[in-house]
Simulated scan of single mutants.
Amino acid sequence: MTIAPPLIHSHGDGYRLVYEAVYATDIDDLWAAVTEPDRLARWMADYSGDLRLGGRWEVADADGKGVWCRGTVTSCDAPRGFTTVWHADDEEPTELVVRLAAVAGGTRLTLEHTGIRPIFYGAGWHTYLEALETHLARPHATRDEDAWHQRYRALSPGYEARFAAL
């Protein structure tokens, strides 16, 4: 599977990214992969907290000594989706919506991140969604930070050009 470039829209003084990808797994497995802290740690980051309605969560920074992102789940309809406030370090809060739908061949994940300002989110989410695919194929493998950073650096120039064109 190849992650298609997202739709990028201007949104106020920021942007809205919309990704869609179909993963070769059922909706319950994909839901677990995007909401359970132990699964998230294998492909994305070390989450703590609760990804259910009203739940608060946070992500540890790389050295584990602080928090680089936190939020509160504002809606949840397991296993079809959730909405959360996304508050990254030194940024205004944004909104992240994840929706899942069973389709022929697997489950479609739609990820919308609204209100972002830094352009690194485009290549970042793209790289994470590819890492999710790898996780689903090898669920017990641990994330490879070096590979993630290499892929992010490879994707960044294309995303920078797309944002600059808006």
Score class of each variant (00 low, 15 high):
65 K>Y: 09
86 W>P: 06
112 E>T: 14
71 G>K: 02
111 L>Q: 13
144 D>L: 07
138 R>G: 13
8 I>H: 06
4 A>K: 03
73 V>W: 05
165 A>R: 06
81 G>A: 01
134 T>P: 00
41 A>T: 10
70 R>F: 07
46 D>L: 07
126 H>W: 11
84 T>R: 04
116 I>S: 08
72 T>G: 05
10 S>V: 14
59 V>Y: 03
54 G>V: 01
115 G>M: 09
138 R>L: 08
31 W>G: 10
19 Y>N: 01
94 T>M: 07
58 E>K: 02
100 L>N: 01
160 E>T: 08
14 G>R: 00
137 A>T: 14
165 A>G: 14
156 S>W: 12
144 D>S: 10
49 G>L: 00
75 S>G: 14
65 K>N: 15
54 G>R: 03
109 L>E: 10
99 R>F: 00
163 F>K: 06
63 D>V: 00
157 P>I: 04
163 F>T: 06
110 T>D: 12
77 D>Y: 02
64 G>A: 05
94 T>A: 08
62 A>F: 04
125 W>T: 03
21 A>Y: 03
96 L>F: 04
117 R>K: 11
52 R>W: 02
72 T>S: 09
28 D>S: 04
102 A>F: 09
69 C>Y: 01
92 E>D: 15
57 W>Y: 11
6 P>F: 08
59 V>S: 12
18 V>Q: 11
31 W>L: 07
25 T>A: 14
148 W>T: 14
141 A>E: 11
67 V>G: 09
150 Q>A: 06
133 E>T: 13
146 D>G: 12
25 T>Y: 06
3 I>R: 03
140 H>T: 15
41 A>Y: 04
7 L>K: 11
13 D>S: 15
94 T>Y: 04
63 D>N: 03
99 R>L: 11
119 I>P: 11
145 E>H: 14
161 A>F: 00
150 Q>K: 02
35 T>W: 01
10 S>C: 10
35 T>K: 08
